[in-house]
Design a protein around this nucleic acid. Structure first.
Length: 264
DNA sequence: CGCTTTTGACCAGCGC
DNA sequence: GCGCTGGTCAAAAGCG
């Protein structure tokens, strides 16, 4: 029986597939351009707001304690510089900055006040400190394979948004991951820290990963960390797509179409 | 008992 | 030289 849904029966199947792939490529390219444009606009808007805030702070500084205002101004300026660097790394994909230090922002649930970030590697905490510019403590971690593996990381909540964990990685892993599953943030609270003795930082399989956005090194990070993040992003994309009913429907249609096509 | 986390002490770098 | 700050050490405590 002649299928009515297929219009290109007489065409070379491989050529047809090439056309489809080309169209898809063009569509994705357009989508990419659109998203880049949106991101640029967001950065511009942020900068405009930042300038307004600058003006407000400058105006109020005259009425305040000069030392305190200077401190705030310095902190504010460093924040601005940091964000600018982040924006530029997003929009310009600067892969050349600081080869071994990378920064990853991890969004957590508001109720989750843990400083444990699940990134597929095993870490050992060796210190915690409250820093001057941020009331939330900063946790210091070393790779469990130290001293063989020299990688360290610092985790601290963002001062602007406490639901965001700022993770700074130093160095590169010289070994593979310990866990195949990458989950982002443990569900443990600050008080219920990971269990000792061979405890793995991996959260339970039922744990739903919190959406994570790496705003910093879109370049993103170097080597080991870069591949970690890339792997994670791929997983995130896969998860998002599989949760999308439209995508699953389209996928089912495409697969069934291919099966029928193979039968003919 | 062995491994990990916690946390106060210590150290080094920096600015004044 | 002194004080501040960030980073690290190491003893104590917790846990299985």
């Amino acid at each position: 029986m002649e299928p009515t849904t297929c219009l290109n029966l007489n065409l070379d199947p491989s050529k047809h597939m090439d056309d489809v792939l080309l169209q898809e490529l063009r569509r994705l390219s357009c989508e990419n351009k659109r998203l880049t444009h949106i991101l640029t606009q967001l950065c511009d808007n942020y900068m405009a707001l930042q300038n307004q805030l600058n003006q407000l702070i400058n105006n109020t500084d005259f009425e305040q304690d000069p030392i305190e205002s200077r401190k705030r101004k310095l902190a504010h300026e460093s924040c601005t510089i940091k964000f600018n660097a982040e924006c530029s790394s997003i929009t310009h994909k600067d892969f050349n900055s600081s080869p071994k230090v990378s920064k990853v922002l991890v969004k957590t649930e508001a109720s989750n006040n843990s400083l444990y970030v699940m990134d597929g590697y095993q870490w050992r905490k060796y210190g915690q400190k409250v820093t001057r510019d941020n009331p939330s403590p900063r946790a210091y971690f070393r790779c469990s394979f130290a001293p063989t593996c020299p990688v360290k990381k610092k985790v601290q909540r963002s001062i602007e948004d406490p639901t965001i964990l700022v993770t700074t990685y130093e160095g590169e892993h010289n070994h593979g991951r310990q866990q195949a599953e990458i989950s982002l943030v443990s569900k443990q609270s600050e008080n219920e820290t990971p269990k000792a003795k061979g405890s793995s930082p991996v959260s339970s399989p039922t744990t739903t990963p919190t959406v994570t956005l790496d705003l910093v090194n879109s370049g993103l990070v170097e080597n080991g960390q870069k591949s970690s993040i890339q792997q994670f992003l791929v997983q995130q994309m896969a998860t998002s797509l599989t949760r999308d009913p439209n995508f699953t429907t389209a996928l089912a249609t495409a697969i069934s179409g291919k099966i029928l096509e193979a039968k003919w």
